[in-house]
């Protein structure tokens, strides 16, 4: 009996000593990191987590690139539920980061509150805009997702054999609207006879529901389904795989999820945007209070590089032509119901 006790006591004393010794050493550390000149940048992911195969992962890739090329220190915190956003942002603020990213519009309120509460701390947010209310220490990044959606819509419109395609959105809102109407415009531009089925999952996490909606669309005769729904899309792509139909991915090149069934992806280069802003910050530039918009022109959106696997060359060259037209503003892509109507009338 006493042997157990002795071992326990000894272990306690030893580790106590070690811990206290460790404490002394560490105490000088917090200041030395900020003095050493190495910039630290952190990000808080939304509920999807850092490895979500979507824009959180893309954001993290941007930071990884910054770590490799710019020699900065990076870190992340994942959120398990909505009430984690505030504490996570606060933790990173205290960790001495030069810039803290919030990923996704779900974090809009938390990021705004944090930026107001810590005027000395620089923040960035992806997919959210506050217009004139943006605090001077917050930079918001928007993507012209409608441009990439238009291009994949064009591909879908040209390639459909059943003259029926589908659109699955996450939660209706200004972000997903831009995907929705961009895609509609693209399909319509390619072939006005194609019918588009449209449904919202009302979730960004319920992959099972995404799958069942996709299955329904395929049963109704659609042969290509585009999803703009984050992790819900895993279910959509799974349905395409099982039914051997086409799915179009979003945010990242999702071809790797189902190499034979993901036709193309409307990619949002969150990584580029994050890398550029971090790189600017390292040079001392920070456009706080502004909303930066990334479109085709800025390399912020595009179709996935893997598109050449399944999309015929002639369609791809048409897409390339469209791209230059969009960049030259010869075609202005609609991003909501109102602009779509205008686009539609102009086309007639």
């Amino acid at each position: 009996m006493k042997r157990y006790l002795k071992i326990c006591m000894a272990a306690m004393i030893i580790s106590g000593l070690l811990l206290s010794g460790c404490g002394k050493k560490e105490k000088q550390d917090p200041d030395s990191t900020s003095q050493s000149g190495v910039m630290k940048v952190g990000m808080v992911s939304d509920l999807g987590g850092v490895m979500d195969q979507s824009f959180n992962e893309s954001a993290w890739e941007g930071l990884l690139r910054a770590q490799n090329e710019l020699g900065i220190k990076i870190g992340y915190l994942e959120s398990n539920n909505n009430s984690d956003y505030g504490p996570n942002l606060e933790s990173l603020t205290d960790a001495g980061n030069s810039l803290i990213w919030s990923i996704g519009f779900m974090m809009g309120d938390a990021a705004l509150e944090a930026a107001k509460a810590n005027p000395e701390q620089k923040y960035g947010i992806v997919d959210m805009a506050y217009g004139n209310n943006t605090p001077p220490n917050l930079i918001s990044v928007l993507f012209k997702s409608e441009q990439a959606s238009f291009l994949v819509g064009y591909i879908a419109g040209r390639m459909t054999k059943t003259n029926k395609v589908g659109f699955i959105g996450g939660i209706k809102g200004f972000i997903i609207d831009s995907f929705d109407y961009g895609f509609h415009a693209g399909v319509n531009y390619a072939n006005a006879d194609v019918k588009i089925l449209r449904q919202y999952v009302e979730s960004f996490s319920d992959a099972a529901k995404g799958k069942s909606i996709a299955n329904q669309m395929y049963q109704q005769g659609a042969d290509i389904v585009f999803h703009a729904s984050g992790p819900v899309g895993d279910g959509v792509i799974e349905a395409a795989k099982e039914k051997s139909k086409w799915a179009i991915g979003v945010d990242k090149d999702q071809n790797s999820l189902a190499p034979d069934n993901v036709l193309t992806s409307a990619i949002k280069r969150v990584d580029n945007a994050i890398f550029n802003i971090v790189s600017d910050l390292q040079k001392g530039k920070f456009a706080g209070g502004a909303t930066v918009v990334y479109g085709l022109k800025e390399g912020g959106v595009d179709i996935a590089p893997s598109s050449d696997k399944h999309v015929p060359k002639e369609i791809l060259s048409e897409v390339a032509e469209l791209k230059t037209k969009i960049i030259r503003k010869e075609i202005v892509i609609p991003y909501n119901a109102k602009t779509y109507e205008k686009f539609y009338i102009a086309k007639q």
Binding site: G42, G49, G75, L77, S91, A95
Partner: peptide, 15 residues
């Protein structure tokens, strides 16, 4: 649970 988050932000240990 709260300190676990610190492990992630300070040490980079995955969740």
């Amino acid at each position: 649970k709260y300190g676990g988050g610190k492990l992630q932000s300070m040490m980079g240990a995955p969740r």
